[in-house]
């Protein structure tokens, strides 16, 4: 049956070729839609802000509230920036929350003995190392990323408890400064700039997209597929580590339970920003928008006095709705 199956994709093209020739510049339906869905997350965020401004502008549109919003968004955004690389490469990293907690804990403990700077560097190194392990297992040893990082989710959380001996570690000095203004803005800004440049101004970023687009084509085009996939996980681990350090500063304490469930918020941020889990497309600023959608949505609901349990219901519904609206289903044959 090879023949048969081959012939259907083949000549789907011929018809469109004639169309293209006939009307070379007329925008067709799907193309307009792609352009629209690219702007949807931003439009959604702006829409949310407008609604809340009208409903409770006096409390929502204040400098204080916005400073608060940015700080709330920053940890999920930083973790999400790293996750974006893995997702665009077509894999998933479920371990980011645990890795953040592990890095935050190691940073806090090291900072206590050797100073904040050493603490921060060690924390980031731990995150990157976890990412390296994920990457090597997934890319070289071919264990699916879902499984590898699910394992790491548990391992990193367990190790956090082991190294801390179940005790919380207070955070002080420059390390604590990472979690409050202006340190938190600097951390968020640096993470964004680094991630943005990596994604858009390096061969690594281009390769990541091409691998997510089609791994086989990339390999046949000379892309070092395995190396790039490992690197994507390292970036994810590194930024999860930074997220953990910032979180410790923000809370003033590193605990073994820190950042529990953050992997889900980070995935939500990536997806709400318009980066599909199927990989190949998306960008870092999308994730920033996604993180802000989550935080702004919450913040408004709190201001409007919506009960916490109802907030959860709304958040979940919004996530599914966003994907339903934005997803281009024409390309995907099977949804798993």
């Amino acid at each position: 049956m090879t023949k048969m199956m081959e012939s259907s994709p083949q000549d789907r093209g011929t018809a469109t070729d004639e169309d293209t020739l006939r009307q070379p510049s007329a925008p067709t339906g799907p193309r307009r839609l792609t352009g629209m869905s690219r702007a949807l997350p931003l439009a959604g965020l702006v829409g949310l802000i407008i609604v809340y401004t009208i409903a409770a502008g006096d409390r929502f549109m204040t400098v204080n509230n916005w400073a608060n919003l940015v700080q709330q968004a920053s940890v999920v955004a930083i973790i999400g920036f790293g996750l974006t690389f893995v997702v665009i490469a077509g894999s998933i990293d479920l371990s980011v929350g645990s890795v953040a907690a592990f890095s935050g804990m190691v940073a806090a403990m090291t900072a206590g003995d050797h100073g904040s700077f050493t603490g921060i560097v060690t924390g980031l190194a731990v995150g990157a190392a976890c990412g390296l392990v994920n990457g090597v297992l997934c890319s070289i040893f071919k264990v699916p990323s879902f499984i590898v990082t699910l394992g790491m989710l548990s391992v990193a959380r367990g190790l956090t408890i082991v190294v801390s001996d179940s005790r919380s570690e207070p955070v002080s000095g420059a390390l604590a400064g990472m979690g409050v203004a202006p340190g938190i803005y600097i951390a968020l800004g640096c993470a964004f700039v680094v991630a943005f440049v990596l994604m858009n101004g390096t061969t690594f970023g281009r390769y990541t997209r091409s691998i997510g687009g089609e791994e086989r084509v990339s390999a046949l085009s000379g892309v070092p597929v395995r190396l790039v996939k490992v690197a994507a996980f390292v970036v994810s681990g590194l930024l999860a580590g930074l997220g953990g350090v910032v979180l410790g500063g923000q809370l003033g304490i590193a605990t073994a339970q820190a950042a529990t469930g953050f992997e889900l918020s980070a995935i939500a941020a990536v997806v709400l920003g318009g980066t599909p889990l199927t990989g190949g497309i998306g960008n870092v600023w999308n994730t920033a928008i996604g993180a802000f959608i989550i935080v702004v949505l919450n913040n408004g609901l709190v201001i409007l006095g919506v009960a916490p349990e109802i907030q959860q219901v709304i958040q979940g519904a919004i996530l599914v709705l966003a994907v339903f609206v934005a997803l281009d289903r024409s390309k995907i044959g099977i949804i798993k």
Binding site: S210, E214, S218, L220, G280, I281
Partner: peptide, 26 residues
């Protein structure tokens, strides 16, 4: 052969990216 969802530009340049990059910066 092609990555259907990647721009024509990126498809065409994929094999030669490295030659036009400096220290990984592109």
């Amino acid at each position: 052969g092609v990555i259907l969802r990647l721009s024509i530009l990126q498809n065409i340049l994929l094999p030669t990216l490295r030659q036009r990059s400096r220290l990984g910066l592109y």
